[in-house]
Write a protein that binds this DNA or RNA. Sequence first.
DNA 1: GTGGTCTAGACCACT
DNA 2: GTGGTCTAGACCACG
Lengths: 126, 126, 126, 126
Amino acid sequence: MILKIDFSADIPVYRQIRNEIVLGIADGRLKPGEKLPSLRTLAIETGINMMTADKAYRLLKQEGYIIIDRRSGATVSGGANDAVTLQTKNELRLLISQLKLTGVTKSEILNLCSELYDTMNKGEKE
Amino acid sequence: MILKIDFSADIPVYRQIRNEIVLGIADGRLKPGEKLPSLRTLAIETGINMMTADKAYRLLKQEGYIIIDRRSGATVSGGANDAVTLQTKNELRLLISQLKLTGVTKSEILNLCSELYDTMNKGEKE
Amino acid sequence: MILKIDFSADIPVYRQIRNEIVLGIADGRLKPGEKLPSLRTLAIETGINMMTADKAYRLLKQEGYIIIDRRSGATVSGGANDAVTLQTKNELRLLISQLKLTGVTKSEILNLCSELYDTMNKGEKE
Amino acid sequence: MILKIDFSADIPVYRQIRNEIVLGIADGRLKPGEKLPSLRTLAIETGINMMTADKAYRLLKQEGYIIIDRRSGATVSGGANDAVTLQTKNELRLLISQLKLTGVTKSEILNLCSELYDTMNKGEKE
DNA sequence: GTGGTCTAGACCACT
DNA sequence: GTGGTCTAGACCACG
């Protein structure tokens, strides 16, 4: 799995990494139990600082997306903490507000969500 | 409309204000054409600095949510720029990934979105 | 001649009026010797404050575009002060820089200028 | 590249900085990919406040003239957004009106534009 | 080191 | 009255 970083984006690099990995797990490109690259490998491959990679992994661990083991490094857990759910639902409310105000109808939103959800189950191909 | 600011949150104050106003417009508490408080009033009422208030209004203006009139201050526009839509859809994908990984099913997500959307129509024409 | 004011624009109202009148003179919709509306009329028709209208006329007078006579009000002079030329040439340099950086070629710029100039001689129809 | 600020001019400081940088890019004194001074450096060197410098950079970023990189600050992008083109063309019409009314002939205007454009290619590929 | 955010004032331009 | 701009600091997030 290749991570693309946009250094000129508004969103911090460590968060971009976190987001891409979350997306990767959700759509099946990263499978539960699968090993993630080491901090060093990740840092070199993406051209980022190792401390930034560390920050991303710590965040993912705290949210329950990955498990960090001293011996085997970071592996995908396959789930996430419930605390994430609550926070996410609040954010969802804001996004739906924004979509509504840009003229997206309710059914369009539901279709969009449905498609997005379905798409995640078909990313099995490497 | 009262704005609640959490000064210890990790989300910037000017963005909290922006978000609350977007939510307010979407759910009808703020109606198109309605006048928003002046920069000074907003700053005093919420206990923030004028420049922070200015930053929030500038962002809202840039996104098309409000119109800033040289004579009478800021008013609600009722819509938003298309650029917002695209950005929002990307963010939506991440949120749905997160919900999926915390065990929320597809139908639960769709119900949640539906409820959120409907809640926003209180006090407005359907 | 009808003046359109955009109260939500970044450019001050008095300057919008000034600009529209300059454009009107240049393209022949306003002819030398022609009488401009009184401050009061202008203010009422455009929905602006009389002081704002006054400011616009004072600026136009100072630049030589109009002549203000106590008895007959403001009339179009047909020219402008040389001081305007110098200032304008400086501004022109910036605009051409901007066009160049947005990918407009030299010949496109020259064609554009040529067209703009020619268009101004055909605005004879009221 | 040295930026000259006129603190008594009626054009805001942050806009003067923006203009000088645009001119610098267009005439090749600033090359694409080149690093601009940091906010702090710029503020100290020109004797302005950091927030004013920030305002100038934000504007340049929004217009597409520069890229702000989280790692190393601001760099010249070499282009600009299309939205700038449209705005600029409108402003061009006004300037040409003004020149016409101060007695500058069409061929003089075209020559002037041509010279201004050519002057910008010093130190660059034709 | 960098930019991002924020404060508590101030003065000016505009309407 | 309004927003627009600016100062001289400060602290934090990021890399």
